[in-house]
Design a protein around this nucleic acid. Sequence first.
DNA 1: AGGGCTAATATGTCTGCACATATTGCATCC
DNA 2: GGATGCAATATGTGCAGACATATTAGCCCT
Lengths: 229, 229
Amino acid sequence: MILQGWEAIRAEVLRRIRVRDWPPGALIPAEEALAVEFGCARATVNRALRDLAVAGVLERRRRAGTRVAALPIRKATLDIPVIRQEVEARGQAHSHRVLLREDRVPPVPVASRLGLPGGARLVYLETLHLGDGRPFVFETRWLNPAAIAVPLPDFVGMSANEWLVAHVAYVSGDIAFSAEGAGGREAAVLGVAQGTALFITERTTWDSVAPITLVRLAHGPGYRVQTLV
Amino acid sequence: MILQGWEAIRAEVLRRIRVRDWPPGALIPAEEALAVEFGCARATVNRALRDLAVAGVLERRRRAGTRVAALPIRKATLDIPVIRQEVEARGQAHSHRVLLREDRVPPVPVASRLGLPGGARLVYLETLHLGDGRPFVFETRWLNPAAIAVPLPDFVGMSANEWLVAHVAYVSGDIAFSAEGAGGREAAVLGVAQGTALFITERTTWDSVAPITLVRLAHGPGYRVQTLV
DNA sequence: AGGGCTAATATGTCTGCACATATTGCATCC
DNA sequence: GGATGCAATATGTGCAGACATATTAGCCCT
């Protein structure tokens, strides 16, 4: 069987896995053998198999060979859009209001998540994002001014997230999702009953060395994060 | 500057992005130019840049060149472990109980999500997963027996997920996360107050042609899904 | 039988070259 | 002026060959 292109090879390998030609856990032929069978170079087979390994479909180890993953559905990728884009994707007009901004000593859990000592002062910011004037998400954010070289703006013209992206050194970080009942303030701001289940996104972002910001987004009812695997 | 290995090149490119040598939106030099600068083959540069593009850090288009993504934090990958592994990773002993199993005609939203006509009969399954004997997650599942060649077991000895992975043709599908208040049954089964915010995971999985199963996992308070970006 | 070293092997990566393909910007034509 | 076509260009993909590296299986020695 002659196949053209690494994607064709990936598709054929996937097909064999799906029809259980190669069942979960099975060892599949070596790259060299597949290259001969498909009439292509080993590098091309390598490209296809590596891609499937990244996707979690295959598990590869040197010398040990390549085997079909025992539990295939293991990795999912999701897009984390900027809030403005998310709102606009729903066909609504985005706006935001800064509800509060002040210097504060963060509570211990916040400081520890950011890896800061107890006494450090941070900027605390509360922002409400709206779609067509209705509350969409309530953002509470801790900013570390010590890690930001330029002076902070008032975040009225541009949301904190967009300003950070545009003005601060490239960031990395982690994201966590959870569910929580709305507290009094959240309920009031979002216009829902207290205790309503909210979808919470928490994001920590780091400079190469210092923590920059910790954001907590409280999404109102009906919010979903969706993935294509 | 001479660099060895595509990961070293990726690191150097990332560094330049971080220090805003190449700010968001900027066009970076062509592969050929970077290959000369780093003293390696173009394919090696290509490998590094392609990797960063997959990670969402770079955006590449033929002829148009490679530019730094304007909004870098856009893609996140997360692992979706099997429940048993998740429980065991917490150092707890996993067990599960099948609470209900019967043939049912699914409600319209379920049928439409699976792309099935209205009248089709499915197997409905309610399972409670426990960690050290305490409720961990409440699983409700619709199974499409028409898409499964072998007869279904009782799922007492092995959870549905693990049985499916082991016995059914390889599946793909999508995952969605949301937050909901606990209904009466969920509250009772999980041992929480009605209305408690639950973290909901919904998974649809497909054969190459037919829908196989729709699972809804209701996680109790404190549950988080975490990601490293 | 058991433990440790060695050789075989599959994947990982790199090079240098070539051609394919998408896209852009310019030139041309009406 | 506007639409159309062409050529230049950056990335995408492919090949053959080579060496690197991790891991295993088996051998040897005690």
